[in-house]
Write a protein that binds this DNA or RNA. Structure first.
Length: 422
RNA sequence: GGAGAGAUGCCAGAGUGGUUGAAUGGGGCGGUCUCGAAAACCGUUGAGCGUGCAAGCGCUCCGGGGGUUCGAAUCCCCCUCUCUCCGCCA
């Protein structure tokens, strides 16, 4: 949600921002409704003032036994007019609120302007991209060969886009999750374990709804949603709270499965582990003081890349352009690892600053000191990391010409001491 | 799923139609006292919106929504949540 003052005072900036994200939203209509609402409010407040003052007079007269019939009749009329204004107010507010939810966050001024991902900027490279050797298998073949990945099993149980890990593959999942969480705990995050199914309010609070409803798994009878990311339950942990500045930053990390219908995405990029309907992920979420959120974004990104480095995987950081930025984000870095089997950079983490966009929707305020104007905290989150593509990359990057897969040193203790698969 | 009880300010807890935005206590903050601290005493302490350079003024908010009334924290209806008991169950 954007600040109504901003929309009121600088509609051009909002229009430009919305356009740069390729979102179709009627800002002019919003500005007009906002104005209309203000006018209604002023008139109706004047009437309410009259009602309050004169009602008190009625009370006073009655107490001393005076007749107040005439005054009461007049006030009846005032009350009816107030009611009319309130009906109008309600009608317009509803339309305005609906429209406000369709407005995306505005990109930060540092974000490269561009129409899509071709305008993204690579800001950092780390590690050596591996030249594919003869016989290097893509992860789906390697996984099946090692007996740790069962794509048919997933299909049989749930359908296309679901996978099963077996034996050391399942162990690898647990090992990765535990290692990641341990790293984040060392970095100062509190580990939380949260519900995987959430209410409509929570989905709206972080901005998935109303826009992305088709991408969610939804339980009809209870109107609950399977989470697409831990961002949703963890950010909503602080919904409707006021946080004192000295408690910030608050840093949470959580493992959750993630459920995505991925409506409409089929084809080349969906093979093997590249795009699945259910996957596991460790997430970091931060609630920070609005003045320091961009510093916090840098450290969040660093916290995510620490994990990639612990896994000895080459990566690059991509700064997303305005056209590639998600609905709620003001700025975002993607972390991509290179998988030599599929010869692709795979996105394994998105680290975003949402500024006050989510906090305003979810009503997460900053406790103000006396005399200060009230503000919302800033929220950020980043994956640290998403499992399937990390596993795919491990199976490809750490694959040896002898047909085995080397376990990164840091992960070995979590694999019960095992240093190779196969 | 059934029965009952409840939801008030940072917390506890009064308040059943007319100076109640809200008693009282605790906590927080400021002060007096003290070398300092504690104790004691005094003062202060909710939020949002609108308007204004500001001081201020106005409106709204006692879980949420609707209703009755000149006037509602207080009366009526619906919903949500919490607690207790019963049932069911991993």
């Amino acid at each position: 949600m954007l600040d109504r003052h901003l929309i009121r005072e600088d509609p051009d900036r909002v229009i430009m921002g919305v356009k740069s994200k390729h979102v179709d939203a009627d800002v002019d209509r919003i500005v007009a409704l906002d104005r209309e609402l203000l006018d209604i409010m002023k008139e109706s407040e004047a009437l309410k003032h009259e009602r309050n003052v004169k009602s008190e007079e009625v009370g006073r007269k009655k107490r001393i036994g005076e007749n107040a019939d005439e005054l009461q009749a007049h006030l009846k009329d005032v009350s009816n007019r107030i009611k009319e204004f309130e009906e109008k107010d309600k009608e317009i507010s509803e339309e305005l609120d609906t429209l406000l939810l369709t407005l995306p966050n505005l990109p930060h001024k540092s974000v490269p302007v561009g129409k899509d991902e071709t305008a993204n900027i690579v800001t950092k490279h780390w590690g050596e991209v591996k030249e594919p050797f003869d016989g290097l298998l893509p992860h789906w073949d390697m996984g099946e060969k090692l007996g740790i990945l069962d794509l048919d099993g997933g299909r049989r149980v749930s359908g296309r886009g679901f996978v099963v890990f077996r034996g050391d593959g399942a162990l690898l999942c647990r090992a990765l999750l535990t290692m990641m969480i341990d790293i984040h705990r060392e970095q100062g995050y509190e580990e939380v374990w949260v519900p995987f199914i959430v209410s409509r309010e929570s989905m709206t609070g972080t901005g998935q709804l109303p826009k992305l409803e088709d991408d969610m798994y939804h339980t009809e009878v209870d109107d609950l949603f399977l989470i697409p990311t831990a961002e949703v339950p963890v950010t909503n942990l602080e919904r409707d709270t006021t946080l004192p500045a000295d408690r910030l930053p608050i840093k949470y990390t959580a493992y959750t499965p993630c459920f995505r219908r991925e409506a409409g995405s089929h084809g080349a990029d969906t093979r093997g582990l590249l795009r699945v309907h259910q996957f596991d992920k460790v997430e970091m979420v931060k609630f920070v003081h609005p003045d320091s959120s961009y510093d916090e974004l840098e450290s969040l990104t660093k916290d995510a890349t620490d994990v990639v480095e612990a896994l000895d995987l080459p990566y690059r950081i991509v700064e997303l352009s305005t056209g590639d930025l998600s609905f709620a984000a003001a700025k975002c870095y993607d972390i991509e690892v290179y998988a030599p089997g599929v010869e692709k950079w795979l996105e394994v983490s998105s680290c975003s600053n949402f500024e006050s966009f989510q906090a305003r929707r979810a009503n997460i305020r900053l406790k103000k000191s006396p005399g200060e104007k009230y503000r919302f905290v800033h929220t950020l989150n980043g994956s640290g990391l998403a499992l399937p593509r990390i596993i795919a990359t491990i199976l490809e990057h750490h694959q040896t010409p002898t047909g085995r897969v080397k376990i990164p040193n840091r992960l070995v203790p979590y694999m019960n001491g095992q240093d190779y698969l196969g």
